[in-house]
Structure formats: C-alpha cells, structure tokens
Design a protein around this nucleic acid. Structure first.
Lengths: 236, 236
DNA sequence: TCCTTAAGTCAATAGCGTTCACTACGTGAC
DNA sequence: GTCACGTAGTGAACGCTATTGACTTAAGGA
C-alpha cells in the first residue's frame, strides 16, 4: 500500500484514497468517538495518509458531513422493497430510519436536516410516495402526507439520535450529570409534575415513535376514506 | 463602567459581568451570526471585557449553551397562563415553542435535546401536565401523552429551527445551494417523485406542525373518551 | 520517451477553547 | 479607619483545529 520513496519517507500509492474509503473511515470515527472527534488529523491517522490529502476528494469538512448524510440514507434503504400492503411499506421505512439513526447517532444528528441532493435521498422520497400512491391518495394528498410522514420520521428519529449522541459525549466525561434529571426543589412549585415525578422517568422513545407513526398512518387512512367518499357522492 | 488604571490600561469594574448579561450577549450573537460565531473572543468584544473573563461565570462554552437553552424556555413561557379549555392551553404552549424556536433558530437547534435542569424547564413540564390533567386523563395516560406532546413539539420545532439556522449559515456564504433542491436526473429513476415534483417544492412547515399537534390532541381526546367509557362500564 | 495531470505531502497560518499567574477592587473583621 | 482576604477581570501562554499553497512524484496519454 505505502511505497517507500528515495528520500526514505513513505507515501501512499496513488488512488489509495477515494471518496468512499474516506466516508467509511469518517463513519467509523463518528460512531466510536462522536462528531467533534471527526478531524482531518484523525482521518489521516485512520487512513495512513496526510490530513490534507482529504482536500483532494472533499473541498472542506462540511462536504464530508454532507456525504455522510447521503451514506446514511443509503444504509437505511439497503435491501428495501415495497410490501404488498402500503401500511407495511411505511412501517418498514419508518423502522429502517429509526434503526439506522440509532446505530449512527452522531452522524444522524448532524445530517438529518440537510438536503443532501445525493442519489439515495431521491430514492427515499420516491419510496414514500410509492407507498402513499398504493394507499390510493390523490397527488395533492400524497404530497401533503409525504411531508407529514417524512417530517415525523426524520424529526423523531433525529431527536432520539441527538439524545444518544449527547449521552455518549457525556459518558466519556464522567460527571454523572444525566442522573440528576428532573429533580425539583419544592413540591408546590410544580404540583402536577410532583404528582407524577416517578412515572415521568421511565420513557420509551421507540414506543412513542410508533405511536406517532400510527397517528400519521391513521391520518392517511382517513384521507383515503374521504377521497373514496367524495368520489362515491359524485357518482350517485 | 470601565475604570482607567494607574498603568494606563482600562479594566471593567467589578460586577459588570453577570451570568445574565453574558447570556444576553450570547443570545444576540447567536441570533445574528449563528452558532459557530459564538466565541469567547466575540463575547469579550460585545461586553468590552477580556475573553477569558467569561470563565469566572461559566466553566466552559458548553455551560453557556446550556444556560441559553433554559433561557429559551423562559422566553417561550413568558406571560403564559392556562386557558379555560385544556385544548387551548396545549395549542398555546405548542405555538409558543414554535414561535420562540423560529426567532432563535441557532440556539434552538443547539439546545432542544438537552435537559437543562433549569428552573424554567420544570415550569414547562408542569404546564403541559396541568393541561392534560384538566382534560381528565389519568396519571398514567397523562404521562404518556405528556411525552407524546413534548416530543412532537420539541422535535418538530427544532427541525424547523435547524433548517432555518442552516439556511442562514449558507446565506452568508452565497453559493446558492438551496435552490437546486430536488432536481433528479432521469424520470424513470424515481417515477413517483417525478409525477409530483412541482407540488413537492412548496412546503409549509407550520401547517404540517399544526396538523401534527392536532393529531396529538385528537389522541388525547380518544384517551379521555376511553377512560370515561371504562368508568361507565364499571359503574353499570 | 516525454510531458501533463493530479494525488499525496509538508509547512505555515489564523482562530479556537482553555489554563494560569497576575492585579487590584470591594468587603468584612477588627 | 485600615488591613487582609476573596475574587472578578486580565493577558500571555498552550495545544488543537480547518484550511491553504508550494512541493514532489506516480500514472497515463501522445
């Protein structure tokens, strides 16, 4: 891999570094150490190259993060195929996003709100629209519910990912701050809180996520019923 | 304010800097220039002090951001009082969060996922629980729907804020990247997308937000009805 | 075979958060 | 009144960061 040059210094062969090998290393670094640890120096270490070699493949750090965002969509959709039932398709897409974001929380929290304009983003949009079309929605309702579904999936999965990333970041710095959560000083200050303070602690983000997806799908069902009803009224 | 010392150099009077004056300056900087521009040097400029003077009031940069988070909740709840209708109360809280996050997108996108453990966070939790209690929910259902409501409000408002913050950051750097959004190469590559590509562009995040809040409130109504029904069945 | 292109390297720069020893002001004890 | 102490504000470091430009040299076409 590395060639020894005349002057005694080693240097990577031409073509050793590629966009995808850099993204792969960047993903590994982010997963293991968090967003702030993704530096050019670390990338250089991981790849056995000079830090500034990255600039031959990406014009700046932000472009690397953007590429990571599209890669996350690629990972998420890997092997996806529409189900017979449109509801199953939406569930599949929703769960895939959650799982992927959970596996790569640092990347997820840094990229979810970006429009990557990469090839995989388009596939994801198309997959959602296909499911909504299969449900029987008109184009207008499909667009509305596409936004509703995508917004719910991305925002909630990213919210969960951001918390995971923040917790991981604190874990390394062992101050134990995340245990003191929700400890008020005086009962009368927040009586409603006080009454349920023990129950508040246990929180299953994934169960809440599923509830929200169910609400969105229920909304799709109602929209389909409305449109079917409208057509029937028109025909009678 | 600044005293001239014997040696000819000026120095701020003792007590000029406070946590709240620093937070105020930090909020202004973030609003005007975005998250990455909040530096100790800039804070020093704004306040006419040495950059390192901040360390007498905050132990590091992260603690400043955390304090900004609690301040955002304070701003959001300023003047809030429960309405006669629990639905109005929830709507009020939801709209307040959205508006505040929209006014301070850089701060919002950096703080929404944190637990500030500040005094105002507790008030917000209590206000939501109060509304759900007024709706007639049991403690268990109130806790569940508290999480559902809070997760929806925070994640969606923050998602919107993150986009605003990202757009602002790009605005300064005028590459015009945000106009190329959603432009595919080949119709057959993403046929469902292609069919509605024009309709996809116009997107009203706030309208979608209101739809989601409506879905959550509808879910509360159904839970209330379920519980009323359960009690009546038990009595008969 | 030579010559152009571009991938990888290295050194330099400016800006960042953070630390530390230092200075001098305001306060409480006497 | 005055004296000592605690502490707010200072300024000079430190090590790390992204980014740039000049360089070397491998690869590939003419």
């Amino acid at each position: 891999m590395a060639t020894i040059k005349k002057n005694g210094r080693s240097r990577l062969d031409r073509g050793t570094l590629t966009r995808s090998s850099i993204i792969e290393a960047a993903l590994r670094i982010m997963d293991e150490s968090g967003e702030s640890k993704l530096t050019f120096a670390r990338l250089g270490q991981q790849l056995g190259s000079s830090p500034s070699a990255m600039y031959r493949h990406f014009s700046n750090r932000d472009e690397i993060i953007e590429a990571l965002g599209d890669d996350l969509i690629r990972i998420s959709l890997d092997g996806y195929a529409p189900s017979a039932s449109w509801e199953d398709s939406l569930w599949d897409l929703a769960v895939r996003a959650w799982r992927t974001y959970e596996l790569h929380p640092a990347v997820a929290s840094q990229t979810y709100f970006r429009v990557t304009r990469g090839p995989h983003e388009l596939k994801a949009v198309d997959a959602i629209l296909q499911a909504l079309s299969a449900a029987g929605l008109s184009e207008d309702e499909a667009v509305t519910h596409y936004h509703l579904f995508a917004m719910t999936v991305l925002a909630q999965s990213a919210d969960h990912a951001a918390k995971l990333a923040a917790m991981k970041a604190v874990e390394v710095d062992p101050t134990g701050r995340w245990e003191q959560v929700y400890v008020p000083r005086d009962p009368h200050e927040a009586p409603y809180y006080w009454a349920v303070r023990d129950k508040l602690r246990s929180r299953d983000d994934y169960a809440l996520y599923r509830t929200q997806i169910e609400l969105v799908i229920e909304s799709v069902r109602r929209a389909v019923a409305r449109e079917v009803g409208a057509v029937e009224r028109q025909e009678s």
